[in-house]
Every structure is written in C-alpha cells, then in structure tokens.
Design a protein around this nucleic acid. Structure first.
Length: 946
RNA sequence: GCCCAGAUGGCGGAAUUGGUAGACGCGCUAGACUCAAAAUCUUGUUUCGGCAACGGAGUGCAGGUUCGAUUCCUGUUCUGGGCACCA
C-alpha cells in the first residue's frame, strides 16, 4: 500500500538507511501533493532558475547529462527555502536531425520515436528527484508550441531594423517611409549605395516593391551556401561531411548556393555586443560572443579595375599600409571573378574554383602550410600610386567576411607574405627596418615608411590620415566591420517547424497576409504526414514530395523547415505561460517572471543558441511584446562529465590477454593491442574475466594472464562518454544501487560545476557512507528516534552554524562540491561528539534538503512536520557561535613556516613580537641574527625576516 | 589556424581577498568486531632522508614581482571545448 501524508508510523523492521523505500515514498507524496507546482504569486520575490533543455536522444541520459540539472535544482530548492517564488521548469528541444536520420533508417515517424525518447528522459529525470513543475513542460515539436515559433517568424518577416533608433520596427512603417521619402536615410543593409526616391518607389510593381522590402526584413530570403551531395541528392550538415565527402557512403560533396531563409542578426551586432556588458556571465563566455561578433574598425577602399569598368571594394583594418599593397585577393566565389578573368587564365581559375568548392570553410581558414590560389590575369589600379595591382583568387579569403576581397600587404601580413613568396610577387616594404624581408611585420608599433604622405607617421596616426585621404579623394570610407554573419534559417529536412509561407509567382507571403485570402492564416501550420523521409527533388526537403500539400489554390508552400535553434530561441518565455492559447506568453506573465535569473548549460552553446535567443528577445522587446531585451541575466556553464574507459591488453599472436601494469607496456611495445572493455564488466580496474568472455565470444578461448595477486587489471583512460567507447554509465543503475540522494550529492562532490572531470563509480561509496552516517545521527539500529531536548554544546553549535554559513555562501556561488565536504565535516563532528540535540539536528535536515531532498523530507516528517521540507525556512546562522578569541598562528622565518604559536586576537603586536623572538625554535632559526623585519597579519600569520 | 578554458598526491579535488599546500572523499595500508564475509569503527597515507624529533624538495615547464606566490606578471608545453546545417 502506498504511503500517504506523513503518516508512516507503521513499524518498519529494517532501520538502516533504506533509500529506495524512502525515495519512492516521497516522490509519490510530492506528486500527489503537487509540491512543485508554481503559481503567479505577487507576495514573494520571483526567481527564475532554468536549465538548457535537452535534445531527447535515443540513447537516453548518461550520468553526465544531469550535472547541470542537479546544480540548478539545488539552487532552486535553496531559493525556495529563502522565500522566493521559484520558476524551475523543464522541457525538450525535440526537433532535430537524429530523429529524422533514425526515421530514414527504420521508417518510424520522428514524432513517435521522439515521444518515446521524451518519456524515457522524463522517467530518468524523475528518478533523480528534480523539483520541476511538469505542468509547464515545453516540447518544441508540439504543434501547440511551434504554432508560436511560426508566429514569431511571421513577426520577424514583417519587421525591419531601423538603424537610426537601433531597433526593430514593423515593416508597415518602412513602407510608409518609402511612400513619403523613398529610402533616403534608410539604406539597404549591405547595399548602402542603392538609393531610390518616392517616385521610383511608387513606380515599382508590387513584385519589385516586395523584392526591395525583402532586403530589409529581419527574416528574409537570400542565396546561401550549403553542402550539396549529388550522389545522395541531398543537402548535408557540416558534421555529415568529412574531408569533402559524405560521412555516410563517402560520396563527394561541394558547396552550392541555394535560396534560403536567413535571419538578419547582423543588424543587431552592435546591440548584441553592448548588451553583454550588463550580464553576469563568465568573461570567457562574453569573450566568445564578442569574438564571434568580431567588431573591427577600418576602412572600405575602392580599387578601380585597369581593363574593365567597375571596381572592387575591400575592407581593411590597416589602411595605413595602403602603399604596401602588392596584389589583391578575391574569394573564389566573388561575383567579379567571372567577369575579369582573362582567357589565358580561365582554365586555371575554373580548376581552382572546383578545388575550393570541396573545401569546408574551416579547412580554408586553417590551412597555413600550403599556399594555394590562382591568378585571374586582371589588374586593379592603386588609388594613390596608380600602379597596376594583380588580382588573384585564394581560399583564404572568404566570400562572407567583409567584402569578400582583400588588399594584400605582404610586408605586414603573414598570410599575404606567404602568398607573395609562393607566387613570386615583389614585396613592397612599408615598415623600414622592422621588416627584414623574411617575416611579415604585423605589430602596430612604430612608424610607416616609404608611403608618400604617410611616411614617418606612427600607426594609429597613419590610419587616421589614410582614412581621411581616402574619404577626401572619394576612394573609400571609414567603416566598422563585423565578422558576424546573418544566420541561415532554412533546412532541407522534414523534422522541423514548417514555414508559414506560401509563394505566389515566386513571391513569398506569410500565411496571414490578405493576398492569400486568409485561407492559410490559421496557425499552427502542422507538419504533414510523409510516406518517405527521403529528400525531395533538387535538394529540397522531404515536404517537396507531397504534391497536394505543396500546391494550393493560393500558391505553393515553402518546403524547407526551420533549424534546430528556432524553437530554442524563445522557449524560456513559454514556460512563464505555457498554456496560453492567445499569445506566446502574456505580458502579465513575462512582466512578473522577467529575465531568467540563472541559466545553466554547457559552453557548447556559447555562440549558437545563446546569441540567437538574445536576438529574438531583442526583437520581441523592440516590437513591444516583452519588457526586457536580454533573456539570461546570469549564466552558469557546467563542464562535462567524461567517461573513464577500460582497456585490456592483447597479444593476438599468442592469443593471450595480459593483466595491465606499467612494465607490461614498456616490455612489449608494438606487440600489444588495447581492446576496449565495457565499464560494466569492471570493478575499479579489475576485470570480470568470465563476464568479458561472454560479452566478446570471439575472445572466449583466449588466455588471460592475471597479475601476481590473481586479479586481472585493465588500464584506464579518460575520454568523452559515448556508446562506441563502452564507457557510458546510466544514472538509473547508480540510483538503483545507491539512491538518488547519493547520486545527486556525488555528482556535486566530484568537483567544481564548471570543470570537466571523469566519472568514477568507485568514489560514490564515500558519499553513500556519509548519508548512512548522517542517518545514524537520527535513528539507531533498533529504529529508535534519537533527537531529544538535551542541551547542545558550544562545539556542536559552532559546527552547525559554521556549516549553515558555508552552505548558504557556497550555494549562492554555485560551489556545490564544497557544500558536500562541509556537510561531511559537520556530520563527522556531530557524530564524534554524539550530538542528540533536536534543534541542531533539525537545522541540519533543513540545510541538507536542497542536496538530498528525499532523505531530508523523510527525516523532516519524522520530526513531526506535516508540510514538505521544500517549504521550510533556511536557518539563519549566528555570528555569536562563530567568533574565536584566539588564533594559532604559523610562525615563519624568511617565509618558511617553522612553528606554531597561539595568541589572543586582541593581543598587541609588540607583545607578540617579544614572545615570538623569545620562542626556542624561532631563536634557533635566527641564529642570533637581528630580525630585519617582523610581519604580523592579524588572524593570518607571522613572519620574521632576517 | 583562430577564440576560450584547464593543469595541485595513485585518483576526484580543497585552499573564496597574496598568508600553515593537500581540507573532504576514493583507493591503498595496518588493526578491531566476525567461523567467515558484508557493514561499521580505528590507524597511517605528497615525496626524499631519518626509529623519531626534525630537515630537504614540492601546485605542468622556464623566468619575474614579493617578507611570503597554487594565487599576480612574462614566456612556454600539453589536454579539453567552440569555430556558423549535431544539438
């Protein structure tokens, strides 16, 4: 019979710490009493504690996943006890490639496998005793959720970024401005030179007008590169392409342009950069975002072509080196390449372009050893010296960065230098003696030389003078450049949000626009059923295969789907108001819960998810839907828990495995083969040989040569935890064996939350012993309740209050490993002193509650409380119990500690000096010398310098 | 290649503001209880020399600042994470 309430006074025969019975009982009780239900409560301050929601993979959770969840759960529970109304939800980032891949292989619908995976994840999470309010669960692939993802996309489509006010505004306001003044003062992003007046605007056809508007929209269509695999007839993700061939099948892949949806995140570059200042994120994380945004100051310079009309624009951060330009390099994809390449060079250029098409961007920018490129045969004209400048193409210039073209200054840039040497281009020195002809001088120290009007000027001054000369001559302009690029928002896949877009004559309309006669307006636009998950024609997604879905009387539907980050860019709003059918979240809800106070997740999201979520929040704020424009106030990054793999050593010729030792490897190098052993078959390093033989029947008749003690040892190596390495540890197994409370505390005890560290199943015993020891403070073997009203000693009180203070401080700063140590020390002390004082022991239960909620709940109820310990108050520590009157000082001579001496804390320095110098040990080290200096730091140490 | 982080006993780690390096735990060691095992309790455990007292060395490596450096500075090596369609 399941227990109810706190009425469990029925006799229990087994009075040891019976974690499985305790944990099951209280999990049921929490559920029945909806302990973790969160409501809108104005009377308490709010606290929003959020985990990055997981992608529910088919492999289930391993012990590494819950690390951050445990930390945030402890924090959330602590904040509840401190009187906050805590929002601590969980959900699933459920769209994604793996489910689709699985569907391709097995034919099972991604919705089905995803639902199964989510069910498994939830069960695993519940096993660990998290305080999530599951009523607020968010699943990105649920139509009731992605309805609002689509709704936000429509807002992005109908919005543009006003550079003057630095915020997004409805597109209707842009149209109004065009009707009045054309695009005067509102340049087209990326095409700032294109200007039209009101008449020109009005003369445009609707199609032309919409084409112009597309260049402003925050969600827009453009041509962008993807990996295209001809043999598979599909677009591939970066990590599906390895060295230019597909991961599956090894078919050649090339970069190909496709028409895609993009997000104009570049318009937010400045705000995304500035917004970082006020955030409580690690400096490392902010640096990564700053670096990604990549703001740089410089100039855009126009180089006219010698034998053609037109010009090439370059962006440079070093306009001061303009006189050192010896050649130019265009990205192979640069639009100008086809036009300017001479007949002589056409074949070479075409071949080189084919080569770069197979190269990933990463390969192109990382390649430093071999220089590649091709000469176009064309020349530009230097704007000041008018000398002819040869134009090359090379992979190290990327089309997407700056203008896709550079002016090359070999004396001042390492890559340009290598390029010049390789192609035997004469190098002009603009750094005088600082360039020695062998290594480019790229420092910004010193003066510029041999550069006409710039000669003799120090670099910063030269940059200014050069920019002014460029602007005066109408040759260039001062410019700020960002490395940040607009984000691709199309995927040629099935398992993602469909776009609420319909094309009429190739013009995209959002489904709520009047042109579609309101026939498509209802959201969500649900994913239609497909019979096959194979790609559609010409690289389109599987949706393109469903003729009668694509073709509607009003037009043809968009067949791309949204990328994985669409749903995760705003889910933190939905938790605030998860069942709202009118809005993505009400203003009342978002105004109450505001920003996420603490966001916990891995660094791998540093620049992807965290940047997109910030942009979406800014857009929603600009359009008036929420009141704040930064989603995550504080960010905590958890490290990874790595696997500890095991290897057995095999001499295949002799059909013999040898127990591992340091000598073994040294004695037989080359002859030994390391064979992976599942961690399930190993106790520490000792292999269960019989189990291994069963696991790998192909080795069943091999010999196993044990060590001298008769055991067979494996070697260990720290690696990523993954199935293929046989080092995955499932939290379910750990919880079954030791209980969730032990598991939670052990994960925290392992080390600082932000560091990566290997999992070691053996170490968990220590934490488990600690909980058993704690249990014995409350109940003896006979099951008698031990706490009574006996008085507490001063030592006990000091021990308790020191621990209360430390726990509070450590939880606030996410230092959970030291929390566990502090509790261990406290329990050790209370055990030694035989503490039975119920006041102390009850406080101990409270401070244990965030870390070990099941055990604490059980003891809490044994104290006679009816409510949950979750709602108990966090005890206050009292300074009176912590003050010490004296200190045992380390006394050092010349910085080396030689002895210890105790002094009262209010002893004056003169007396201390006298006593120290009189001390026998110190006198011995002084050897009669007069101390040069006497250093006394109150409460810390004493140092005598001779 | 670029950006970021980390390196302390056999292992995970502690030392929160520059002040006794190794807390706490694992493992190992010796012992108590037990027919035995488990559980529990007790002892020791950075390393070298020494019975000990004590002394030398020691926080990836090489320097520097300081009365004093795991902590600050310069350089360097190695490991891990990210680099735009994995999530």
């Amino acid at each position: 019979m399941p227990p109810h309430g706190s009425c469990f006074h029925e006799p229990v025969s087994f009075m040891d710490y019976n974690f499985s019975e305790i944990e099951q009982r209280w999990r049921t009780w929490w559920k029945e009493h909806a302990i973790y239900k969160t409501t809108h409560d104005q009377s308490r301050p709010k606290q929003y504690v959020l985990d990055m929601f997981p992608y529910p993979s088919g492999a289930g959770l391993h012990v590494g996943h819950p690390l951050g969840y445990i930390a945030s759960d402890i924090y959330a529970r602590y904040k509840r006890m401190k009187g906050y109304n805590v929002l601590h939800p969980m959900g699933f980032d459920a769209f994604g490639l793996p489910a689709e891949q699985y569907a391709l292989e097995t034919g099972q619908h991604p919705a089905v496998t995803t639902a199964q995976n989510i069910a498994r994840y939830k069960q695993q999470l519940d096993n660990i005793g998290f305080s999530y309010d599951w009523d607020r669960e968010v699943i990105t692939s649920d139509p009731n959720y992605y309805k609002w993802t689509q709704w936000i996309f429509i807002r992005l489509f109908h919005a543009w970024f006003d550079r003057n006010s630095q915020r997004a505004r409805p597109i209707a306001e842009l149209i109004a401005a065009f009707d009045k003044n054309g695009n005067a003062g509102i340049p087209i992003p990326g095409e700032e030179d294109t200007v039209f007046n009101r008449e020109q605007w009005k003369q445009c056809s609707t199609a032309e007008q919409r084409e112009i508007l597309m260049k402003y929209r925050l969600a827009y269509l453009d041509w962008a590169e993807v990996w295209w695999c001809e043999a598979l007839g599909t677009v591939l993700a970066n990590d599906e392409v390895i060295n230019g061939v597909s991961e599956r099948g090894g078919h050649p892949c090339v970069r190909k342009k496709m028409r895609q949806w993009m997000l104009r995140i570049t318009e937010y570059a400045e705000r995304l950069l500035a917004g970082l200042e006020g955030l409580d994120w690690s400096e490392a994380m902010k640096d990564m975002q700053r670096n990604w945004i990549g703001k740089s100051y410089g100039a855009e310079v126009r180089f006219d072509l010698r034998d053609h009309d037109g010009h090439i624009k370059v962006f440079t951060t070093r306009p001061d080196t303009l006189f050192g330009v010896d050649f130019m390099v265009l990205a192979p994809e640069h639009e100008m390449v086809g036009r300017i390449t001479t007949k002589m060079q056409q074949q070479e250029v075409a071949e080189y372009k084919r080569y770069t098409q197979r190269r990933s961007e990463r390969e192109r920018i990382s390649e430093t050893k071999t220089v590649t490129g091709a000469f176009t045969g064309a020349y530009a004209v230097h704007p000041f010296t008018h000398k002819a400048i040869p134009i090359y193409i090379s992979e190290y210039v990327l089309a997407g960065y700056g203008t896709g073209a550079i002016m090359a200054v070999p004396s001042g840039d390492e890559r340009d230098h290598a390029f010049a040497k390789h192609f035997d281009i004469k190098i002009t020195n603009v750094f005088g003696a600082r360039y020695d002809g062998t290594v480019a001088y790229s420092d910004k120290e010193g003066t510029i030389e041999g550069s006409d009007f710039l000669s003799g000027l120090p670099v910063p001054k030269a940059i200014e003078v050069a920019i002014r000369a460029l602007e005066d001559g109408g040759i260039g302009t001062r410019r700020v450049n960002y490395k940040l690029r607009d984000a691709g928002f199309s995927r040629q896949r099935y398992w993602g949000e469909p776009f609420p877009i319909t094309y009429q004559n190739d013009i995209p309309y959002t489904n709520d626009e009047p042109e579609l006669a309101n026939t498509h307006s209802a959201l969500p636009l649900t994913l239609p059923h497909v019979d096959s998950y194979r790609p559609g024609p010409e690289g389109q997604g599987p949706l393109a295969n469903i003729e009668d879905w694509v073709h509607t009387p009003q037009g043809t539907r968009e067949t791309n789907t949204m990328p994985g980050y669409a749903g995760s860019s705003w889910y933190f709003f939905r938790y605030m108001d998860p069942h709202n059918e009118q809005e993505f979240a009400s203003r009342k809800a978002t105004d109450y819960w505001q920003q996420v106070d603490v966001y916990v997740g891995g660094t791998e999201h540093a620049v992807g998810h965290l940047l997109y979520a910030r942009m979406w929040t800014k857009t929603l704020a600009d359009l008036g839907y929420v009141a704040f424009d930064e989603p995550f106030k504080k960010l905590v990054n958890q490290g990874m828990i790595q696997g500890s793999s095991r290897f057995a050593y095999l001499n295949r010729e002799q059909k013999k495995f040898s127990s591992f030792s340091d000598q073994l490897k040294a004695n037989q190098p080359g002859a030994l083969e390391a064979i992976r052993v599942s961690v399930d078959l190993v106790d520490g390093l000792v292999l269960d040989v019989e189990a291994f033989r069963k696991w790998r029947p192909d080795y069943a008749d091999f010999r196993f040569e044990p060590a001298a003690d008769g055991k067979f040892y494996c070697s260990a190596e720290v690696e990523k935890m993954s199935k293929s390495k046989y080092n995955v540890v499932n939290p379910d197994d750990i919880v079954a064996k030791y209980g969730a409370d032990t598991f939670r505390m052990y994960e925290m005890f392992l080390g600082p939350i932000e560091l990566s560290k290997p999992w070691d199943t053996q170490g968990i015993e220590g934490v488990h012993r600690f909980l058993k020891k704690l249990w014995r403070l409350y109940l003896n073997e006979a099951g008698d309740w031990l706490p009574t009203d006996v008085p507490a000693t001063e030592d006990m009180l000091r021990s308790l209050h020191r621990t209360i203070k430390k726990l509070g401080e450590d939880i606030e700063r996410f230092g959970f490993n030291t929390c566990v140590s502090a509790l261990m020390i406290c329990v050790n002390e209370l055990s030694v002193s035989g503490c039975r004082n119920e006041g102390i022991l009850e406080s101990l239960v409270r401070i244990l509650a965030p870390l070990a909620p099941h055990l604490s709940e059980d003891l809490w109820h044994r104290f006679g409380h009816e409510g949950s310990v979750t709602m108990a108050d966090w005890p206050a520590w009292e300074a009176a119990f912590l003050t010490e009157s004296s200190k045992t000082y380390p006394v050092a001579v010349n910085g080396k500690p030689r002895t210890e001496m105790s002094f009262s804390l209010d002893e004056n320095e003169g007396n201390i000096r006298e006593a120290v110098l009189a001390n026998e040990t110190i006198a011995k080290w002084l050897e009669g010398r007069e101390p040069k200096k006497f250093i006394y730091v109150k409460g810390k140490m004493i140092n005598v310098v001779v």
